[in-house]
Amino acid sequence: MELFLMQLLNGINIGAIYALIALGYTMVYGIAKLINFAHGEIIMVGSYTMFICIATFDLPVVLSIIITILACALLGVVIEKLAYKPLRNASRISLLITAIGMSYLLQSVFQLIFSANSKTFPQVINVSNVEIFNVTVSGNQIVTLFVAIFLMIVLDLFVRKTKTGKSMRAVSEDSGAAQLMGINVNRTISITFSIGSALAAVAGILYSSSYPLINPFMGSTIGIKAFTAAVIGGIGIIPGAVLGGFILGIIESLSKAYISSQLYDAIVFSTLILTLVFKPSGLLAKHKKEKV
């Protein structure tokens, strides 16, 4: 029982991180219909930025976090402007290849600067462990969960209540119509990318605090998992990303502990396959029929 609770907690911990990243995937997909394969690399960049701020420049933690978030948000916007915007009318597959190219580019640049060897991420979360029902909950887990839930609530309010949030939803429904209604589509897309990347930065810091070895390729594995989470929940749907993230995290953690420490990835991706077979557009998606 204790083992189960512990694994469940681990699952919720990693699930919260997946959810934060999945939000970025889902928002970008919703608005640009693009599987942003470079999104995983933002996590990696975030981790390295934090690492430099603390290990090299010895900055205070809060300032480092702010710098990391701003740097990633900016990077997200720059990538969009440089690589995706010129291709907005191109075929989807070209856009996808560009995103993949972007992902390789960030990986190789960071590999050239920091080498392929892993670096140890500094301890930035200093919260003591808590004991609940004989199960130790680490400070990291508590912080991760609270930060993630806080950000999700803020994001939800932002998207539903603010003018910018409404224009984001309008652009994702129909960008042409949104433009005709006087919405600045370019600005909205930039904002979406910056929010998604900021969330990825936070996710990167949280992830590296729990698993403190960082390398230039860390982003692709987490990225694909988080993307899988977004699809399981229904890509383009914000609550879907959160649901998918937690489901995936818990399944991964439990199957690692109870089924096989090798096959857990296969189980994670089989979950994806089964979900799509039974719910072709994800758990929370509404079925849309093509008009004839």
Partner: peptide, 20 residues
């Protein structure tokens, strides 16, 4: 895109099974 994603998942499943 959903087909793309499911084939991605499938590729990863095969790789993991072979690894084990």
């Amino acid at each position: 895109d959903y087909l793309a994603i499911i084939t991605l998942g499938f590729g990863e499943v095969i790789k993991t099974i072979l690894l084990s």
